[in-house]
Amino acid sequence: MLVQKIHHVAYRCKDAKETVEWYEKHLGMKFVLAIAENEVPSTKAPDPYMHVFLDAGNGNVLAFFELPGQPPMGRDANTPKWVQHLALKVDSMDTLLATKAKLEAAGIEVLGPTNHTIFKSIYFFDPNGHRLELAADTATPEMLHKLDSVKREMLEEWSRTRRAPQHAAWMHDGSHA
């Protein structure tokens, strides 16, 4: 395979300082790097920006661009808010629940935990309007094997019908218990 890992994932932010401080305070991410330019290196277009990088654990980096010369941030109006999100893994359900309590105590609205059978998640928004998900794995090896064995069939059926295949209905009908 050509790709070794994701180097970083970048999003736009309204205010770089506010964003860094929010991620440090609420998710414990370390601020690792800032790059600022008055022109875009790849295109040479004059467009000042601040590019900040945060440690998302295990070599993963979450980055943001503040673009003061561009129109205000928007979002894809044709895509539901629940679709575009960044999911971050936590080590346990205890951590997930403790983080939920911490976020709520800070006045942040949190949805969940939502049971996805193979993981449980909470959902909330950062100060830029980006939806975040924190997920704690709950799958057994058997569950993962079962999903792995039907993934291609599911994709093919979806591709033909654009209807949800039922190969993994056990995840939500209670029969996995």
Rank of each mutant, 00 (worst) to 15 (best):
L54R: 13
H167Y: 13
P71V: 06
K100I: 14
A105F: 04
V83S: 10
L27E: 06
A106T: 08
P68L: 01
R163S: 12
D94F: 05
F124V: 09
E142T: 12
L103K: 04
L132H: 08
P41V: 07
E157P: 03
H85T: 06
V3N: 08
P165H: 02
M154N: 10
N115H: 02
L132S: 10
I118Q: 09
A105P: 06
N78W: 01
A136S: 13
G129T: 09
S159D: 14
M73C: 00
L62I: 14
A139K: 00
H26I: 05
G129D: 06
L155C: 07
H8A: 08
A45R: 12
D137S: 14
S159L: 12
D47W: 10
E142D: 15
V20Y: 00
R162M: 09
K89H: 02
D94Q: 05
Q4G: 09
G28W: 11
I6D: 04
K17E: 15
E18M: 11
L86Q: 13
T114R: 09
T79W: 02
K102N: 12
L111P: 00
V52K: 08
N128K: 10
L144V: 11
D126C: 09
E66S: 03
P48T: 04
K89Y: 00
T99I: 11
Q84H: 15
L103N: 06
N115R: 03
C13D: 00
V90N: 04
T95C: 09
S175R: 06
H51C: 03
V52P: 03
Y23T: 07
L97W: 13
E133D: 09
L2W: 00
H8R: 08
A136D: 06
M171R: 13
A139G: 07
A87R: 01
L88Q: 06
T79M: 13
R160N: 07
P71H: 05
G107C: 05
V61T: 14
H7G: 08
V40M: 10
G57K: 04
K17T: 15
H8T: 03
A10D: 00
L62W: 11
K146H: 12
Q4H: 09
D47M: 15
T114S: 03
A36R: 09
E18K: 14
E157C: 02
D173L: 03
P68Y: 03
M1C: 10
L134Q: 12
H26D: 04
L2C: 02
L132F: 10
M171F: 07
D94T: 14
A34V: 12
F125Y: 15
D76P: 00
V90Y: 01
V90G: 11
L33Q: 12
